[in-house]
């Protein structure tokens, strides 16, 4: 199967955990966001907000390749 890719943007305290080549993160088509994060050693518990192509989605959303994925940890400062 041809590998698929997503663009991954990790915000705030998750940013240092970004994999190399964030613009072309290899995925197996059909993988959930949760499984992808686990595979990349990114703590799923900190992934409070999941955005796919600019729309809020859940950790269970499956990726097919070509998506922009954004992950925000909780942010509460003022």
């Amino acid at each position: 199967m041809t590998p698929a890719h997503v663009r991954l943007k990790l915000f705030a305290s998750l940013a240092p955990l970004s994999p190399e080549n964030v613009d072309r993160v290899v995925i197996s088509p059909g993988v959930s966001v949760k499984a992808l994060l686990a595979h990349l050693d990114i703590p799923v518990a900190k992934a409070h907000l999941v955005f796919i192509n600019g729309v809020k989605r859940s950790l269970d959303t499956r990726l097919n390749g070509g998506e922009r994925v954004g992950i925000f940890p909780p942010v509460a400062g003022g």
Partner: peptide
Amino acid sequence: TIARGSETRLGC
């Protein structure tokens, strides 16, 4: 389960 977020590590 938490009261605060990333700011405890990153400051403001």
